[in-house]
Design a protein around this nucleic acid. Sequence first.
DNA 1: GACATAAGCGGACTTCAGTCCACATCCTCT
DNA 2: AGAGGATGTGGACTGAAGTCCGCTTATGTC
Lengths: 217, 217
Amino acid sequence: MPHVAPPPFELPMSSSPRTPEHERADARRNRERILSATARLVERVGIDCFSMDDVAAEAGVGKGTLYRRFGDRSSLLRALISDPEQAFQDELIRGAPPLGPGAPPAERLHAFGDAMLRFLDGHAVYIQAGELLGGVKRYGHPVHALYRTHVALLLRQCIGEGPHTEYLADALLGPLGAEPFLYQRKLRELTLDEICNGWHALADAVLAASAPPATRP
Amino acid sequence: MPHVAPPPFELPMSSSPRTPEHERADARRNRERILSATARLVERVGIDCFSMDDVAAEAGVGKGTLYRRFGDRSSLLRALISDPEQAFQDELIRGAPPLGPGAPPAERLHAFGDAMLRFLDGHAVYIQAGELLGGVKRYGHPVHALYRTHVALLLRQCIGEGPHTEYLADALLGPLGAEPFLYQRKLRELTLDEICNGWHALADAVLAASAPPATRP
DNA sequence: GACATAAGCGGACTTCAGTCCACATCCTCT
DNA sequence: AGAGGATGTGGACTGAAGTCCGCTTATGTC
C-alpha cells in the first residue's frame, strides 16, 4: 500500500482549520480580539454562561465576523485550546518516546492513554462545552480519526490483526473522550491518577487477552 | 453482603417519571395524542426534522401542554421507547436467566451486553436524538445508574473488589451507550453481530485479566 | 346538582444559535 | 499610485427550544 508522505508544512488531520498563510490584517486583528474576548468571558462567567452575541459584543465585532471565523460555538471553544492540542499532537507524531515514535508499541499505547488523560484534565471542559450544543460531535471530529488511527495501529502491532482488534481499539479510545473523562472526574470523583491507573488496567487486559501465545506465561 | 429485595410495586430507577395513578381524563387524552403525534412525525419526516411546535400542532395541543408532560425534547423522544425500555429492565431484574437472576455472573454479564446491544439496535436513534440537544445527557440519566450498578455488581462477583473494578465496569458500559453504538453501526458500518462479538471479546479480556488466580490455566 | 379548587391548558414571549447579504476594507497587479 | 476584485464585516433576520401566566376544566364535596 503506497504511503503518502505528509505535506511538509502542515500537520495532517489537524484539529482546526489553520489560519491561512495570507491572512488579511483586519481579519487577524478580529480573530485575536474574538479569542481573547472569549477567554475573558470564560474566565469571568464560566464556560457555558455566555451567548455568541456576548462574545461578539465583548470583542467589538459583529456576529457575522464571529461565524465567518469559527463556524459555530463548538469550534470557537475548541480554538481556545488549539495551541495545547497542537502541541499534544506534535508530541504524538514527532515527539520523544515513549509517547512519540521509537518505543515498543505496548509502551507507546500506555504512554498515549496517559498523555491523553492528562491533556483532558484541564481541557476536557472546553471540548465538552463545545459538544453540548449542536456542533460537530466527538466521532465526527477530524481529530478523532487521528487518535483512532494511532491507537489501532499500536494495537495491531501488539496483538496482530484479529477479528476484534478494531473494536478493541475503539473500546480503549472510549474512556479517553471528554464526556467519559468528566464523568469519572466529576460525578465519580476519581482523581486523575485513579483514572490513569484504571485505564492502564484496561489496556493491560486487552493486551493480555489477545497477546500472541508466545508472550503468555 | 445483604441484598435488598426490590420494592414490590415499583421498579427502582425507572427510566421515566411514570404517569400518576390518578391522571385526569383530559391529561391522559392529551398525553396519548402527543405520543402518537410524535410517532407519526418520526415516521413521516425522520427523527430530527420536526420541531416541538410541529408536535404540538400535529397533536392539536399547545406548547405548554407538551412541555408540562415531557419536560424537554429529550424526554419526549425517550418516552416513545418507554415501553420496550421498561420491558428490557424487567427482563434484567426479574426475567429468566441468563439475562435475569440465576445464571453465573460471567454468563449474566455477557447476556447483559448482548441484550443491551440488541436493544440499542433500533432504539439507539431515539436516545441519541434526545441527547443531541440540551436534554439530560447519558451519564445524568437515572437509567444509567441502574445499568452501572448491574454491571459493577456482576463484575465484582466475577473478579472481586479490586482497585480498578469500578473503572472496568464503566469501561464495559462505555460501548453500550447510544452514541458509541451508532458510531460503530453507522460510521464504522459494523453489523450488529460484529459489535456483539467485539463486546464479548472486550468482556472476556476484562474478566480474564483480573480473574481470581484459581481460574487461570 | 352547584361550588370550590387544584390540576391542566395554550399560546405569546424570551433567548439564543446560526444565516444572509449589502457594504466596507484590504491586497495585488499594472 | 490607483483601480478592481477578492475577502472580510456587521447586524438584521429566521427558526427553534423552553418559560410564563392568566384562563379553562375536571373532580371531589356538600
